[in-house]
């Protein structure tokens, strides 16, 4: 067969196996994104606090995430904790820990950016109208912040999904690994399968991520002209 591997998709439940492999990556990213958004709101608010200690800790945290590849963090959590603490963290859990650690910083930075982007006079004019601090946040600041935040956090989902492809490097069987196994098992009958199969994985990621980026772009455009 010279279909460059496409025929393998129809063989047995191969395609289904690949889809469930993709789901592993997507599942890890969804859990991490949800945790990141929740924690990121807190961290983002903390970043605007004028306390020196908190500020330094937050800067350090951001800088670590900015510099260290997620792969390195994955290795530290997955291999390192076993050695140091003697606890064996499951691969999927370490992935979630690392991606949440990373995502929280990203989200926190977005929240901070959104908070400080609200001009001073918005606070002042709300106060001048007699609104309390809580009311000011609830009715004036928060709605404006959310409009900026929602597109950006949707964008974080696609970045998270793309990043979770790394988990195969710590032995999690996701779509790339499944695909490798299928290619390996059929190397005699379909020696050229790698082309079509990896092209399929490529398109699978694209089909998952593209609509989400489009949505994020669309919302950003629609909400940017207040």
């Amino acid at each position: 067969m010279q279909l460059m591997g496409i025929e393998l998709l129809l063989k047995g439940n191969n395609f289904l196996r690949m889809l469930s492999g993709l789901w592993v990556a997507v599942r890890i990213s969804l859990v991490s994104v949800i945790l990141s958004i929740g924690l990121g709101l807190i961290v983002g608010a903390l970043m605007t606090v004028q306390n020196k200690v908190i500020k330094t800790v937050m800067r350090l945290y951001l800088e670590i995430v900015r510099i260290m590849p997620q792969m390195v963090l994955l290795f530290i959590v997955y291999f390192g904790t076993t050695r140091v603490f003697g606890i064996n963290i499951e691969a999927e859990l370490s992935a979630i820990i690392v991606f949440t650690f990373w995502g929280t910083a990203e989200m926190g930075d977005l929240v901070r950016g959104a908070l400080i982007s609200i001009p001073r006079h918005q606070y002042e004019s709300a106060e001048a109208l007699g609104l309390s601090k809580l009311q000011t946040y609830l009715y004036v600041i928060l709605p404006q912040t959310l409009r900026r935040l929602i597109p950006l956090s949707i964008n974080l989902i696609t970045r998270m999904i793309k990043t979770t492809s790394l988990v195969m490097m710590i032995g999690i069987v996701e779509v790339l690994k499944v695909t490798q196994q299928i290619i390996e098992a059929n190397r005699r009958t379909s020696p050229n399968a790698a082309f079509g199969m990896f092209a399929t994985v490529f398109m699978m990621y694209f089909i998952v991520c593209w609509p989400i980026s489009l949505l994020s772009k669309h919302l950003e455009k629609r909400w940017s002209d207040r």
Partner: peptide, 13 residues
């Protein structure tokens, strides 16, 4: 295409 797929997958391909 390239902004919406991971580098790892691109490299495998």
């Amino acid at each position: 295409l390239f902004r919406n797929t991971p580098l790892l997958v691109q490299l495998f391909f």
